[in-house]
């Protein structure tokens, strides 16, 4: 040990301990990160090292959402701090100087309705992950994109996911966010959910809205219709083949319920899927596999089937509620599963 040990020469684990202690008291977490990085290049390297993200989570910036915009040939990426309110967010945003490789927009000239699409490639996902290094879970990523020519003329850009993006890379990317919107149904698997909700920022996950990726773009009207179609899971995969005992099939209603029950203490978890088969099959499945779910009396004069189960952990009651409704406009059944803390005094 040198007789003149310098602060910058302390072992990494000791410096990480010191940084964490500063964060516990400093409310200005945004400037704290910069302050420490400016002390010396060793501090800068340690704080910038993605491997230290977890121990340094307390000095990372709290980001609600990001936006990527293209102005002519220039790009702008913004991170918004601590709010999803647009007006407040405007005053509360931060530039990120590391740009992802944004794929080029493609146009469909033959279509009467103006639309464009963007290829979400593996390279884009990896590049975006690079840019998000050092940020905690962002509130939401929504792949239902909008192109803003001006405030009166909003055009939709449809995201197309490349075949080279597998469940593993998508789940890793998705772990940067607390909520997901409009991701293809092929990522709607138990493996994906497991990786997503078991990340280092566990406790923040809130909402998953898987979306049927049609594989082709049919224009603006079709986009709107698609927006109402959540990921369909055929009843054949679970009522006829007993898929809940098999890992071969994609996520089933039973696996969905399982995933929610296993993560009941994490926080609010909503998961929506559509069921595209006959009502009697759904009821039959529920009767055979309801695992102590009790039917809840209908209210609001709707025809929804509501099934609820109570769980208790350390004196706290949680409910898992499954609401199955028929969506007349698209002719299919829709299941919504959610968990909530129950106040038993009510």
């Amino acid at each position: 040990m040198s007789s003149e040990l310098n602060l910058a020469e302390l072992p990494v684990e000791v410096l990480l301990d010191i940084f964490r202690n500063v964060a516990r008291e400093d409310t200005k977490t945004v400037s704290l990160r910069t302050t420490l990085r400016l002390v010396c290049s060793r501090f800068n390297n340690i704080i910038s090292d993605p491997n230290n993200n977890r121990p340094l989570s307390e000095i990372r910036m709290k980001i609600e959402k990001i936006t990527i915009a293209q102005f002519g040939s220039a790009l702008a990426i913004r991170a918004f701090h601590g709010t999803s309110n647009e007006q407040t967010a405007h005053m509360n945003r931060e530039r990120i100087y590391s740009y992802p490789e944004i794929p080029l927009l493609k146009s469909g000239r033959e279509n009467p309705v103006p639309w464009r699409w963007i290829d979400i490639t593996r390279s884009f996902i990896l590049s975006l992950m690079e840019c998000l290094n050092g940020y905690p879970r962002i509130h939401c990523i929504n792949f239902d994109l909008y192109e803003l020519y001006n405030m009166e003329n909003i055009k939709i850009i449809k995201a197309e996911f490349g075949k080279d993006i597998d469940v593993g890379i998508m789940a890793k990317f998705a772990s940067n966010f607390r909520a997901l919107g409009f991701i293809p149904k092929r990522f709607n698997t138990f493996e994906f959910i497991e990786k997503l909700t078991n990340g280092p920022e566990i406790g923040d996950f809130g909402y998953l809205n898987p979306f049927e990726d049609s594989g082709e773009i049919l224009g603006y009207l079709s986009c709107l219709i698609n927006a109402n179609q959540l990921t369909p899971i055929s009843l054949h995969t679970f009522s006829r083949f007993w898929a809940f005992q098999s890992i071969k099939f994609s996520t089933t209603l039973d696996q969905l319920i399982n995933a929610i029950e296993l993560r009941i203490k994490i926080g609010k978890l909503n998961w929506e899927i559509s069921l595209s088969d006959e009502e009697w099959e759904i009821r039959n499945f529920m009767q055979k596999n309801n695992r102590d779910y009790q039917e809840v009396e209908p209210f609001n004069n709707d025809d929804a089937l509501r099934l609820m189960k109570l769980h208790q952990f350390n004196g706290v009651y949680y409910s898992v509620l499954i609401i199955i409704t028929r969506r007349h406009e698209v002719g299919c059944y829709h299941a919504k599963c959610l968990n909530r803390i129950i106040d038993m005094l009510l």
């Binding site: 602060l7 010191i18 500063v22 302050t35 420490l36 002390v39």
Partner: peptide, 21 residues
């Protein structure tokens, strides 16, 4: 140690602790 960082800028911490710039 972290208490000595309170309210300081990066260069101030550097100077107080004798860290070379």
């Amino acid at each position: 140690i972290s208490n000595t960082f309170k309210g300081k800028t990066g260069p101030q911490i550097r100077e107080e602790w004798g860290v070379p710039n």
